[in-house]
Lab assay of single mutants.
Amino acid sequence: MFYPNSPQTSPQLTQIPYGQQYAMMQRQIQQPYHPFATTEPQARLYPYHYQGPIQQEQGGFITQQSTAASPQYVQMRVTPVDQSIMSGYPNQTANGSSSSSFNYNIHPQQQQQQQQQQQQLRHHAMPVGSVPLQDDRYRKQLIVNYLAPDVTSTDLHELFSRFGELDGARIIYDKQTNMSKGYGFVYFCHAEDAKEAVERMSGYEFHGKWLKVGYSTNPLNIVPSNSSPYVHAGSRGAAG
């Protein structure tokens, strides 16, 4: 039997160049792979992502010199942007860049009308829970959420009447099932009393439920100042 490094198959040491006398086997001759043993700084910083320098080929596509990437890492192929796409944008300079302001050559009167329309939209648009300043009635009506099913309009009136005089209180019921929808409205005579009720009743436990109280901004629920107070009856038909 002959071994790869046996004296019968191995040459004389004098015939082997210096430095390879003890590297006779194939696994010894093959050098191990060192990912950080390279002179390129990109490979030292990113050993798993770097795959060699990027070269520009004919046709405008950018390719990489090395083989496919590892399945664990996804390499994105980048193509140059066609400058003709950006030619339609206004205020574009000769080098292809555009300024931040756009001039669509709008007539001054049209621009003024658009600004007025935007101001009107901001004036009428009102986020949930906010209180408008032009109508004091919005500051007097509250919406009470997360009410228990057994709470009546009379219970709601008695709960909030300790903060001040009320114009009314009612629970909203479903017309088909005649069941409470879980929320109601309270109408105060003074805005200061309503503000105190919002601050003190939010998070209050009532009939096993934690109440959420806020201003009601729905104009359909506003009680006119010259109208008669609501009837605080315990029956659902009268309260709904």
Rank of each mutant, 00 (worst) to 15 (best):
Y3K: 03
Y3W: 14
P4Y: 15
N5D: 12
S10L: 10
Q12L: 07
Q12P: 03
L13F: 12
Q15G: 12
Q15W: 15
Y18K: 08
Q20H: 14
Q20G: 05
Y22L: 04
Y22K: 07
Y22N: 05
M25A: 03
Q28R: 10
I29W: 14
Q30Y: 13
Q30A: 02
Q31M: 12
P32W: 12
P32H: 04
P35D: 05
F36L: 05
F36G: 07
A37V: 15
T38M: 13
T39F: 12
P41H: 13
A43M: 09
A43L: 14
P47V: 15
Y50I: 11
G52M: 12
P53F: 15
Q55L: 14
F61A: 03
T63M: 12
T67Q: 12
A69P: 08
A69N: 09
A69E: 06
P71C: 09
D82Q: 13
Q83S: 09
S84H: 07
I85F: 07
M86V: 08
Y89M: 01
P90D: 09
Q92Y: 11
T93M: 15
T93S: 09
A94T: 06
N95Y: 14
N95W: 08
N95R: 06
N95F: 15
S97Q: 13
S98N: 04
S98G: 14
S98C: 07
F102W: 12
F102Y: 12
Q109A: 11
Q114D: 06
Q115V: 11
Q116S: 10
Q120C: 05
L121R: 08
R122L: 13
H124A: 11
A125F: 15
S130F: 11
V131T: 03
V131G: 05
L133N: 13
D135S: 03
D135Q: 04
D135Y: 11
D135K: 01
D136Y: 11
D136R: 02
R137E: 02
Y138P: 02
L142I: 03
I143S: 00
I143C: 00
I143Y: 00
I143D: 00
V144D: 01
V144Q: 03
N145L: 01
P149F: 04
D150S: 12
T154W: 09
E158F: 14
L159Y: 00
L159M: 14
S161K: 03
R162C: 13
R162M: 07
G164A: 01
E165G: 08
E165A: 14
A169R: 06
R170Y: 00
Y173H: 04
Y173A: 06
D174S: 03
K175T: 03
K175V: 03
K181F: 01
K181C: 01
K181I: 01
Y183N: 01
G184I: 00
V186P: 02
Y187G: 00
F188C: 03
F188R: 01
F188P: 01
C189W: 02
H190V: 02
E192N: 03
A194M: 00
A194G: 01
A194I: 01
K195T: 10
E199Q: 09
G203C: 04
G203F: 01
G203S: 02
Y204N: 02
E205F: 05
E205D: 04
H207K: 08
W210G: 01
W210D: 02
K212C: 01
K212Q: 02
V213C: 06
V213H: 01
T217G: 01
T217P: 00
L220M: 12
N221M: 12
N221R: 14
V223E: 03
V223S: 04
P224L: 03
P224W: 07
S225W: 13
S225A: 06
N226M: 13
S228A: 07
P229S: 06
Y230V: 05
V231A: 07
A233M: 13
G234W: 03
G234S: 10
R236Y: 01
R236N: 06
G237M: 10
A239K: 04
A239N: 01
